[in-house]
Nucleic acid binder design. Structure first.
Length: 453
RNA sequence: GGAUAGGUGGCAGAGAGGUGAUGCGUGGGACUGCAGAUCCCAUUUAUUAGGGUUCAAAUCCCUACCUAUCCUCCA
């Protein structure tokens, strides 16, 4: 599989080693409800990791959660809660959102506050190498020692100077320097360290977590594009300083921003749609379909009509899948192998889920057009849908109704009999009551079909 | 202002030199006790504008305009 790398700007082959691939994705800062922008990014990486595993590449997928930060403290002051109580609550919200979205590929969620020791250890090592200096409010990272700072952002040092926000921190040796450890302020959560009580800066949280798990090498670092600078640039700097290597991480990957009315959906712009609002209206599969229907790397302008569109497509694919289950004997033969090949080819090409999905729709359409699908083709097509679903997650699961298939079948037959006798009131009442039990009956050319909703 | 990514039908969105995917919407038809779904046909002279390279450009190059993201808060 090839994936675009931000630094080289090129497609890089991944998943070639039989060793587990080490994937790290920047998690959220938990000071507010998770929103659709988060879902977009994490669904993308979830599908990517699942696809790699489906194709036989073992993956260790690690994600951090920033549960101590300025934003959390500020929010806690507003609400009157303890900062760590607040972050714990929103962490749970985040985990719930991931569960809702079917994001279950992450091997471990690392909370920053559980890794204070690793953070301190890492700052010590930077200190020993001369990469830090003290100011009254904290320990800072010395950026000028790395001549390639700005590599990720692809800006030269001259370009970096233009437009820098010239405010505060005038004491810093260089405007680009960033804080590693913040000294304690009254009323803030703090931890002991060799430099006095305090708390970690944002950037070092990620490197401390990723490197303490992964050691020397990270195969893939993912994040939303808004984290590229300064956050990931700082991470890259820390890694480079620690390992004396610019290639600690092989590939930097970014998801595009979710927009709403042409603007980025974000907590700071306060234009976000929280996941619980979505949850009420749309299913996991519809949401995944929506986000995987665009390229992970492009921006996507959100609208509710996108979800309506997805709802129809999810239902269409699902209907064709249900139809497959009931095929037997002779009929139309479908070249499923070609569909599978096209699907994999597009997934392998920078994770083109958009085209992958359109291929599934075409397959579904071919199934729908056929009067009867030949037995072998039906089995293969079903297998392809199942396989694709292991990473896309767009096929609704069958809900158990508690009513055995046989009973449903006989009720369907009874209803047919009543319909033939034009006893519509009676036949409709069978349909209604099964409908209430979550079973949908639809009359078609080849008799009545039913499915669990 | 700088960096980066873009501008494709009514809408959403792929494709990256050789008849412009896919979905939604809209209009018409078929099927039909009703409901739902499905099928067929049409919407199809859709690649921001202007130059250039080429036998051939949505795709490569130049210029202009427009949009988004980032430029030390953000998935």
């Amino acid at each position: 599989m090839k994936l675009k790398d931000e630094i080289s700007g090129k497609l890089v082959e991944i998943g070639t080693s039989s060793y587990p691939m080490k994937i790290y994705v920047c998690g959220p800062t938990v000071y507010d409800k998770p929103h659709l922008g988060h879902l977009r990014t994490y669904i993308a990486y979830d599908a990517m990791v699942k696809y790699l595993r489906h194709r036989g590449t073992p993956v260790f997928y690690l994600q951090n959660i920033t549960d101590i930060d300025d934003k959390i403290i500020n929010r806690a002051l507003e609400t009157g809660q303890g900062p760590l109580v607040l972050s714990r609550e929103y962490t749970q919200n985040y985990i719930d959102a991931m569960k809702y979205a079917g994001v279950d590929s992450v091997n471990y969620y690392a909370m920053a506050t559980n890794h204070i020791k690793d953070i301190i250890k890492q700052i010590k090592r930077l200190e020993m190498k001369g990469f830090t200096y003290n100011l009254p409010d904290g320990i800072y990272f010395r950026v000028w020692m790395l001549k390639n700072y700005g590599r990720l952002k692809r800006q030269s040092p001259e370009e970096q100077k233009t437009g820098t926000r010239a405010k505060v921190a005038d004491l810093k040796e260089d405007q680009r320097d960033f804080v590693l450890w913040k000294f304690k302020k009254e009323g803030e959560p703090s931890w002991k360290s060799p430099w006095g009580e305090g708390r970690p800066g944002w950037h070092i949280e990620d490197t401390a977590i990723s490197l303490s798990f992964f050691g020397r090498k990270i195969d893939l670092h993912g994040a939303g594009r808004d984290l590229l600078f300064p956050h990931n640039e700082a991470e890259l700097s820390i890694m480079t300083a620690l390992k004396n290597s610019e290639n600690v991480c092989t590939l930097w990957s970014y998801t595009g921003m979710l927009r709403i009315n042409g603007e980025k959906m974000s907590k700071s712009l306060n234009n976000f749609i929280p996941f619980d609002e979505l949850k009420e209206k749309y299913s996991r599969e519809e949401v995944r379909f929506t986000f995987l229907s665009s390229l992970y790397s492009s921006d996507l302008d959100f609208s509710w009509s996108m979800l309506e569109e997805s709802r129809k497509n999810v239902s269409y694919i699902r209907r064709s899948y249900e139809k497959l289950k009931k095929q037997s004997g002779k009929g139309v033969s479908i070249d499923v192998g070609t569909y599978r090949e096209l699907l994999y080819r597009n997934m392998d090409d920078d994770f083109n889920t958009r085209v992958a999905i359109s291929i599934l729709i075409e397959l579904a359409s071919e199934i729908m057009k056929a009067n009867n699908v030949e037995e072998n083709s039906a089995l293969e097509a079903k297998k392809l849908f199942d396989d694709a679903n292991t990473f896309l997650g767009i096929m609704p699961e069958q809900r158990e109704t508690g009513i055995p298939d046989q009973s449903i079948e006989s009720l369907v037959k009874l209803r047919d009999l009543l319909r033939k006798k034009k006893l519509y009131a009676e036949s409709d009442s069978i349909r209604d009551s099964l409908n209430n039990a979550g079973i949908v009956m639809e009359d078609g050319e080849n008799g009545t079909i039913w499915r669990r909703e």
